[in-house]
Simulated scan of single mutants.
Amino acid sequence: MAKPDNRSDNVEHLQQHINHTIENLEEAEEYLDEHADEISPEEKSSILEKNEHRRESLQAFREEIRDEATDGNA
């Protein structure tokens, strides 16, 4: 038998994902600020690309939170 769909803590979990993603993004930016002249262009490019994906993920998480809020009010 399938478990009922309990979405009551989805927003909380999404917010935890947002917080973690922001921490990773900030750490990567700090790393670049401190070591940009010491790392290879490939590593720098990789970090910048990952941060772009993180920004996209943050946007998706925030949209999902808005969807959850809308679903909860229906």
Rank of each mutant, 00 (worst) to 15 (best):
E38C: 01
R55H: 14
H13C: 02
T21F: 03
I47M: 06
R54L: 10
H17P: 03
L58N: 01
L25F: 15
E29Y: 11
I18Q: 05
D71A: 14
D33N: 14
D9Q: 13
E52V: 06
E68G: 04
E29W: 09
E56H: 13
E27I: 03
E52M: 09
L25R: 07
N10H: 09
P41H: 05
H13T: 07
E52F: 08
E56S: 12
E29D: 13
Q15F: 03
I39K: 00
E64M: 12
H17K: 14
L48A: 09
N6E: 11
S57F: 13
A2N: 08
I65H: 01
E43V: 06
E27M: 07
Q15Y: 04
N24D: 15
I47S: 04
K44E: 13
D33Q: 14
S45Q: 15
R62W: 06
E34V: 02
I22V: 15
R55E: 15
A28Q: 02
S8K: 13
L25H: 15
I65D: 00
R62C: 02
L48E: 15
Q59K: 14
E43A: 06
P4M: 09
S40I: 00
R54W: 12
N10T: 05
H13S: 05
E29S: 12
A60L: 12
F61K: 00
E68L: 07
E26L: 14
E64F: 06
K44M: 11
E63Q: 13
R7L: 07
E42R: 02
